[in-house]
């Protein structure tokens, strides 16, 4: 038998549960770590891809939030399982494009699995922990409960960290938000295995959307988009953060900045809103 040609994977975007190419037809190369040898071409998402992703996220959000908390737990746990199953694929991308050693790559996948499991555990428990019954004077019960904010845009830190990114995505979706992620340039090639994790975990289409591209081109559309309810900026560029905050004021998006501890209840709570209900006490 003649030798077969290696079929390498075309890395595309992940929008609404599908794997489209960017509508703009543009791409940018990813090189093998510390070299000028090509690893793959990635899509350079345009503002229209972003718009499509936000539409998909918005359509998916309500259904996702109305799933039972227990079901969200199951699905997040399933993501951990799928990540474990794709360990070799993650390791290949991390060692080849980000320059990790095999040991470091293995550790990064461990962290990612851990993050999924951590928030899987919290998805059906956080409500009990952060809700409260408040003492009020007068014949009323007074409760505070939480709700997801809605559509969250996540701008990843340019210094790539798989575990952190997974923790951010999980913290956002655990409470019933949907998310549009602009991946960091560094580890953008992990979009391939990561999107397949989301696509095969029974996660409703559109809850997680992953884009690769030039942040400079996209951030103003993220900042001003009226359908995005919260903007999570995990980078360190103070000037950009200032601009984003200013734009976010247009529809009062909540801007979330990096948390100290990626695996924490506080992190999850950055993406919920509180609702307080006064309920008259009958006789």
């Amino acid at each position: 038998m003649s030798e077969l040609i290696k079929i390498s994977k075309t890395i595309k975007l992940f929008i609404g549960g599908e794997f489209p190419r960017t509508e703009s037809g543009r791409s940018h190369p990813v090189y093998l770590s510390k070299s000028k040898n090509l690893y793959a071409y990635l899509c350079k998402a345009s503002r229209k891809d972003l718009r499509n992703a936000v539409t998909a996220a918005q359509e998916a959000q309500k259904g996702w939030a109305s799933r039972s908390a227990y079901n969200r737990t199951q699905i997040l746990y399933r993501m951990a399982e799928m990540t474990e199953g794709k360990r070799e694929e993650f390791i290949e991308v991390l060692t080849k494009t980000v320059g990790y050693t095999k040991i470091a790559a293995n550790k990064a996948v461990d962290e990612a699995v851990d993050a999924f499991v951590y928030y899987a555990g919290f998805a059906d428990k956080y409500q009990q922990l952060i809700g409260s019954v408040n003492p009020v004077s007068g014949p009323h019960h007074n409760f505070t409960s939480s709700e997801p904010v809605g559509v969250v845009a996540l701008i990843c830190n340019s210094k790539f960290n798989l575990g952190n990114m997974v923790a951010q995505i999980s913290a956002i979706i655990a409470s019933g938000n949907s998310v549009v992620v602009i991946m960091a340039d560094d580890g953008a090639a992990t979009l391939a295995p990561l999107s397949e994790v989301f696509a095969t975990s029974d996660l409703p289409k559109g809850v997680v959307n992953l884009l690769t591209g030039d942040l400079n081109e996209l951030y103003s559309h993220l900042g001003t988009h009226m359908e995005i309810n919260s903007l999570s900026y995990q980078g360190t560029n103070k000037k950009l953060l200032g601009e984003l905050k200013e734009m976010a004021a247009g529809n009062m998006k909540r801007v979330v900045t990096p948390v100290n501890e990626p695996l924490s209840l506080d992190h999850l709570v950055s993406y919920v809103e509180y609702k307080t209900v006064w309920h008259p006490i009958g006789n």
């Binding site: 718009r51 936000v54 559309h221 001003t224 988009h225 009226m226 359908e227 247009g250 529809n251």
Partner: peptide
């Protein structure tokens, strides 16, 4: 008019 993507709840 504004250059921003709009929200139908407006």
């Amino acid at each position: 008019a504004t250059g921003h993507y709009y929200y139908d709840k407006v």
